[in-house]
């Protein structure tokens, strides 16, 4: 027994990854894109680009 090892901390997200993980996205069904919600204080140039949802799916 004893203290837990510190290796878990290495598996944590970076600050930038954690910030991006918290970002809200929405599906724009008109364009078929996943788009990030704008957050106050965000630099528009640092906004992630929309991701095109696949036009096709399979079962």
């Amino acid at each position: 027994m004893g203290a837990a090892p510190n290796s878990l901390q290495q598996a944590e997200l970076t600050e930038e990854q954690a910030r991006e993980k918290e970002r809200e996205w929405f599906l724009d069904a008109e364009t078929g894109e996943l788009k990030p919600d704008e957050r106050p204080g965000d630099d528009p140039r640092s906004q992630p680009r929309p991701v095109r949802a696949a036009r096709w799916t399979f079962d």
């Binding site: 095109r52 949802a53 696949a54 036009r55 096709w56 799916t57 079962d59």
Partner: peptide, 8 residues
Amino acid sequence: PAVWVDPR
């Protein structure tokens, strides 16, 4: 439910 089909 579905799986994306996309060349990307």
